[in-house]
Design a protein around this nucleic acid. Structure first.
Lengths: 337, 337
DNA sequence: CATACCGGTGAGAGCGCTTCCAGTACGGAG
DNA sequence: CTCCGTACTGGAAGCGCTCTCACCGGTATG
């Protein structure tokens, strides 16, 4: 990190060029992967760069390349939610993995309370990032706004807008599988705690539940809306009060499921003997509770990695081979059902 | 978001200027808070901006202003750790709050496994950000490297290097208070589970523990190193095996403390009757276990907010009035001791 | 021997913006 | 009627970089 004393401004290409005795263009070539530069020249330039502690100026570079080298994982949720649901770190991690070694920076952007979709759009259009992966959006507004922009974005979860790339889980089918499992295990009076119904995933899981119930000739109408948060699993108390004979519960994510299970047990019911419970997401928390939670997989990291690969294609100017990916969920049977 | 059809490149100042019938300079003035621009002109420019859907190009702007409008919260920990310890979201939140309304963007940068301090330094010097708040650093290497750079940075936690601004908790005193409380409650054979001893906070808490023990004429030598992670609280098993008569435990953070308490109880000891436990951080998880955890406060959000304010002063070219802040911790007595 | 080609290099034009400096128009003071 | 300050505006330089194009010397080709 040698720095010229007194020189408060960072060294530029020009400085390097002068010291190495070459032109700016040549230094630029060396810096950006030495195409067609003589070995000796390259060497000299490298030395000059080290001597000066030169770093290319990102702003200048991206002014001409029209690339920032940054992509964002955008989560339109407040930070406390992002940090409390293990789904998000997984999702973020997947994006990170996809870009490993490609010297693009991945930033995580969350919403502030009260943010409108337009703030997200503005962020995307502000030129801070080259593209984005959007995770956990509520409603179609964001996707619709983005569909008309030239921004390369990929959604994780059904964007509910045409012409937008996405990776989604087959939530309807997954919910069907979960519900059928409950039925197979002998449950008959089954309810579901849904996610926030402004999210497509929550509605899809509700739909799958209802389909499986109807298919089995059972009453599909008992559900209550949660918020995918741990606390919102507390609606289980209400559910049990209204339906004391409940013997099965499909909960749309594990965070809520664990809370619900605690409540069920606190109310004197045994799990799974009295009430069978199936969660969703296969979160770590579900493995450590008693009994361990039966759940549906939702490999967020894989989904965002897929999304990241789509995004790379978009960024490269291409069209993804499969712009609408549907992934499948697996049932993981543990102790709760 | 009206966009000129067919025009793939975004509108520039020039375009706005032409439509509004003024010069680039004037448009620039309007965009950056209309100093000395006639009301009528401002109006015309605003209209042109809306019509074109103009957004200033960040790269061009920061090329000349030498500002990016981005500050980073840098956490030299891997993402799984950042997402699993509630300390970090709090810390991040504090920084966010400090910059609310000031249109600077706050990004969260984490380490990748195997990252060296020099990668962090490089990131800071790469011109991506104007400054940074560094949280949870291990050892003095980073701070030392940064002390010689011109980067405006503020540490949360003792940087162990001269000439670097920081906000720190008085960990020694806090650990003393925690330990004295254990003693007051009747514990005599007390051990501590420390944090990773390459971190100043962990060493300081160990020191405070030892001081309080010595001061009370008790044996200060029983400790085992943890890693501030939930799993690393498992060292409690070892501790109990080696010291079956243990009756007090000071654990350097709540994540470990909860795990330790579970183990203590699983081994048939009652908390607090047989073993008294005091944690550290006042994390939510400590309120929900049985018995609730007695702990020391560690208001991370406040600390990063303070750090953010220091950083703003640094960014403004000034010197913080109080470049080395020491905050104080409070004992929160709950059920575990 | 003229021509083509090729690896290697430099000159120079901009990318879109801010900002200094030099105007211009206008009103009031001398 | 001149002069000067005030309010506003435009011209133009330049931030640090990339990239096209032209050039140069040397070797292979017709």
């Amino acid at each position: 990190m040698a720095r010229i004393e007194g020189a408060h401004s960072a060294p530029t290409l020009e400085d390097v060029a002068r010291i190495a005795g070459v032109s700016r263009a040549t230094v630029s070539r060396v810096v950006n992967g030495g195409t067609l530069v003589a070995a000796k020249t390259t060497e000299a330039v490298r030395e000059a760069i080290n001597e000066l502690g030169y770093h290319p100026n990102k702003a200048a570079r991206s002014l001409v390349t029209r690339r920032t080298g940054v992509i964002a994982v955008i989560v339109p949720e407040t930070d406390d939610r992002v940090f409390s649901d293990p789904y998000f770190p997984q999702a973020y991690h997947g994006a990170l993995q996809a870009f490993i070694g490609s010297d693009v920076q991945v930033v995580l952007a969350m919403a502030e309370p009260g943010d409108s979709p337009s703030r997200m759009v503005r962020y995307l259009e502000s030129g801070h990032v080259d593209g984005a992966i959007i995770v956990s959006h509520h409603g179609p507004a964001l996707a619709q706004a983005l569909a008309h922009s030239w921004q390369p974005v990929v959604f994780v979860g059904d964007p509910e807008a045409p012409g937008v790339c996405y990776v989604d889980l087959d939530n309807v089918e997954a919910a069907r599988v979960a519900t059928r499992h409950l039925i197979e295990r002998g449950a008959r009076r089954i309810a579901t705690i849904t996610g926030p119904l402004d999210m497509a995933s929550a509605r899809a899981r509700l739909l799958g539940f209802q389909e499986a119930m109807t298919e089995a000739g059972l009453d599909p109408s008992t559900y209550v809306e949660g918020g995918y948060t741990s606390e919102s699993g507390g609606v289980a108390a209400q559910l049990l009060a209204d339906h004391p004979d409940l013997d099965g519960l499909f909960v749309a994510n594990d965070l809520m499921a664990v809370t619900a299970m605690n409540i069920v047990q606190a109310l004197g019911r045994r799990v799974p003997e009295d009430v069978r419970i199936v969660g969703f997401d296969d979160a770590a928390i579900g493995q450590h509770c008693t009994p361990p939670l039966t759940t549906m997989t939702n490999p967020a990291a894989e989904h965002t990695r897929e999304a990241a690969e789509m995004l790379m294609e978009l960024l490269a100017g291409g069209t993804p081979a499969n712009p609408r990916m549907l992934a499948h969920s697996r049932l993981v049977v543990r102790g709760s059902a």
